[in-house]
Amino acid sequence: MSVLRLIWSGFVMNLKMLGTSSFFLLTSTVQPVIFATIAYYMFKSGGRPGTLLYAALGAGMMGVWSTTLFGSGGMIQWQRWQGTLELGVGAPPSMALVFLPFSLANAFTGMYSLAATLIWGRVFFGVPLHFAHPWLFVLALPATVVALGLMGLILASTFVLYRYANALANLLEYPVWIASGLIFSTAILPAWTRPISWALPPYWGVLALRHAALGGDVWRPLAMLVVLGIVSIAISTYTFRLFEHLARARATLSLT
């Protein structure tokens, strides 16, 4: 029960903090709308206007990933700046558990992206919002967000040691968009990238959402999201323990 209370309190607290960050609002709402606009014009110019809902979903998922990525990169760094990192590390629960709600809140904020691109597409580009499986879409959305949040936890753990997490975050934005096939099919990528795609929750997340919206098998991507989520929990629990120990041993925890 106390674990649930910790997760809920951390989640709500971080959601409030993110709500006051204009950078986060930009990343989660404006940036996806910009990419959605570019994609709409590209698809329309290329004579493929029928793919606009596909583009809207993809651009929204790009926003979910960006928010998760920058949130994960930032949550350790921001706590360093605020001087609260040691308090979190010193608290009785494991570090992974302390940061889990923060990571979930980051990914949850990313849901604004999907809402923004779908509304934007509907209002300005007349994108039809007819979902093939609306209830499965409602199921796929939180599953995707939670899976991405758990992946963000792994990233955050590595940032305990890496002081310039934002640089790593910048580096990972486009490559994951590409490898996950968020706005184009991974079939056009070189064959050697397939295993990378399969290991990424955003790949399965966008598949689940796309199939729920446009038709197709939703359950298999959903099952993969659950599997990858469990794997992420296992890895992040281990890496948080390891990197926390290393940071304590090297006395680099609070270095900015």
């Binding site: 994609a39 590209m42 110019s45 290329g46 004579g47 056009i188 990528l189």
Partner: peptide, 9 residues
């Protein structure tokens, strides 16, 4: 470039 390929642009 990949998005351009998909859009046939």
């Amino acid at each position: 470039a990949y998005l351009g390929r998909t859009a046939h642009l």
